[in-house]
Design a protein around this nucleic acid. Sequence first.
DNA 1: TGTAGGATGCCCT
DNA 2: GGGCATCCTACAC
Length: 198
Amino acid sequence: MSDNIRMEPLDEEFFQKPTLELAHALLGCLLIKETEEGTTSGFIVETEAYMGPHDRAAHSFGNRRTKRTEIMFGKAGLVYTYVMHTHCLVNVVSAGIDEPEAVLIRAIEPYTGLDLMQHRRPVDQLKNLTNGPGKLTKAMGITMKDYGRAFFESPLYIASGFKPEEIAQGPRIGIAGSGEARDYPWRFWVKGNKFVSR
DNA sequence: TGTAGGATGCCCT
DNA sequence: GGGCATCCTACAC
């Protein structure tokens, strides 16, 4: 991990790359959320790509365009949050206008604001604080209010972090009912990082 | 207007 | 490994 971390948003252009490439590139980046309670941040260590109209596991499968998925049709770098059961999950919109693809942030390694994160989400072991998509949003205070924001602007943004030594790739999680799409190796993680969800 | 079903997490066997 | 909390969305009537 680099010791000269800059907590400044990446350029909008960073997000303008093919979705699978973006899912790769986001690993090691720093995710930052500023709230009235304080600022928390963590390095992205696990992502999943959702490839739009032809990906049965994607919300935008078949070009489904609803109030919920609308933001996926927007430009790369926008924030797509949605509620799953009792949790809020956060995605980075990718690809071009009218190409509803996205990258789900599945896990982060806590960096700053540890106290605030543990206050929001008390856990017995640190590794359980942010090792899942619903966990990290709660710890960082990411909610539906962030829907439609941009990851290249405060208060919820992504900065450069460290360059992962080795990246692993495999099938996505929690999409068993998505036919053949469940086997696509579109999940990426920092190999050996203990905050990866599984 | 009703209802089925999750890109989850947690607690129990 | 399985059940359930809990709630919004999508879609069927």
